[in-house]
Amino acid sequence: MSDLRADLSLALRLADEADKITTARFRARDLVVERKPDRTPVTDADVAVEDAIRAVLAVEAPADQVAGEERGGTAGDGRAWVLDPIDGTKNFLRGVPVWATLIALVVDGVPVVGVVSAPALGRRWWAAAGGGAHTSDASGVREISVSAVRDLSDAYLSTTHLGTWVEHHSREAYLALVDACWENRAFGDFWQHCLVAEGAIDLAAEPIVNAWDVAPFQVLVTEAGGRFTDLGGAASFTGGSVLTSNGHLHDTALEVLAAGR
């Protein structure tokens, strides 16, 4: 952890810079919204946040690679910062306060620092390899850990959008997992994985994600005592899908999702 303290400090400062921009532009009457080639929305705030973070990194860590949702780039061997300036852009542009800036430091393909900052919720989550997982809210800073639930019949499950299961995996498979669990919601995007890390829910599954959508959660959830894999069971943030859990339920959930395809 000692070698990562400076990196975590930098990541938290990057989140501070992002929060200044996003909070100023949230619910702004002159917010500019465009559509990318994949038809997903992007706001002027998304671009401004990524540009601001890149500008700080150019000074503070000029030798590091940077890969971001809006400006591109790759995270190859060595050190790379993986950025999602606003995760939950659809919420952001509609005035729903559930959105966050995601920042991860990846070293040789493995996330070692992750920060998730959701200023409209008054929340932030962070972790560094070997240093545990933490969150802050109005009550202060505390260490977090996953739940102790061991049976799917007692589990609380979340996804982002049921429609994506039709196109990218299997709606029937996800509904089989829903039926096996106690309760389900669509908390969506970053929030559900943070809720897994802090033990509020037990499972979060998404059939289609980009690397920048989930990189911080590989370190956040594992440092909180849980598991992070793609839907094939590989512990990688580049697999195109994701399952986060408290660990106890992980293999069983993967089996249900595989059997339902």
Results as ranks from 00 to 15, higher is better:
Asp16Tyr: 13
Val116Pro: 01
His169Cys: 08
Val256His: 01
Ala104Trp: 05
Asp46Ser: 04
Val242Asn: 00
Asn184Pro: 00
Trp126Gln: 08
Ser136Thr: 15
Val209Cys: 12
Arg185Gln: 14
Leu162Asn: 02
Gly114Tyr: 06
Gly132Met: 10
Asp38Trp: 05
Ala211Glu: 14
Leu57Tyr: 12
Thr101Glu: 03
Val242Gln: 01
Arg227Leu: 13
Asp19Cys: 13
Cys194Asn: 13
Arg25Trp: 04
Glu17Ala: 14
Gln218Gly: 04
Thr244Ala: 03
Arg142Thr: 13
Ala55Val: 10
Arg261Ile: 00
Val66Lys: 05
Pro111Ser: 06
Ala148Phe: 05
Leu31Met: 07
Ala200Lys: 10
Thr252Asn: 06
Arg29Met: 12
Trp99Tyr: 12
Asp64Met: 05
Ala67Phe: 06
Ala133Tyr: 11
Leu175Glu: 00
Glu172Asn: 00
Gly68Cys: 10
Thr101Gln: 03
Ala224Thr: 09
Ala204Thr: 03
Pro41Ala: 01
Ala75Val: 12
Ser117Thr: 15
Ser245Cys: 10
Trp165Glu: 02
Pro111Lys: 01
Asp19Gln: 12
Ile53Asn: 01
Asp77Val: 10
Arg13Gln: 14
Val106Arg: 04
Trp81Gln: 04
Gly76His: 01
Gly232Trp: 09
Trp165Lys: 04
Ala45Thr: 04
Val96Glu: 10
Leu157Phe: 12
Ser145Thr: 13
Pro62Asp: 11
Phe26Pro: 14
Ala200Trp: 05
Leu195Cys: 03
Leu195Asp: 02
Ala200Glu: 12
Val107Ser: 02
Ala258Gly: 12
Leu152Trp: 10
Glu69Thr: 12
Arg35Leu: 13
Ala11Met: 12
Asp38Arg: 03
Lys36Phe: 06
Ala200Asp: 07
Trp191Asn: 11
Ala224Lys: 02
Leu220Gln: 11
Ser158Arg: 02
Asp38Tyr: 05
Asp84Gln: 08
Leu14Ala: 03
Lys36Asp: 04
Thr229Trp: 01
Ala197Arg: 05
Gly122Met: 07
Ala127Lys: 04
Leu175Ile: 02
Ala155His: 10
Asp87Leu: 07
Glu17His: 06
Ala80Asp: 08
Arg79Leu: 13
Ala138Thr: 08
Pro207Cys: 04
Gly226Met: 02
Leu152Thr: 05
Thr43Cys: 07
Tyr156Met: 13
Ser158Pro: 09
Asp30His: 13
Pro216Met: 00
Glu143Val: 08
Ala61Phe: 05
Trp81Gly: 02
Glu69Asn: 07
Leu83His: 04
Phe187Val: 13
Trp212Thr: 14
Glu183Trp: 15
His161Ala: 14
Phe26Leu: 14
Ala55Leu: 07
Ala205Tyr: 00
Pro111Asp: 05
Val110Pro: 03
Gln218Ser: 08
Phe26Asn: 08
Val256Gly: 00
Thr238Phe: 02
Leu249Val: 06
Ala155Ile: 09
Leu152Pro: 11
Asn91Ile: 11
Arg35Pro: 01
Leu243Arg: 07
Gly140Asn: 06
Ala197Asp: 07
Gln65Val: 04
Leu14Ser: 01
Ser158Thr: 11
Ala155Cys: 10
Trp182Tyr: 12
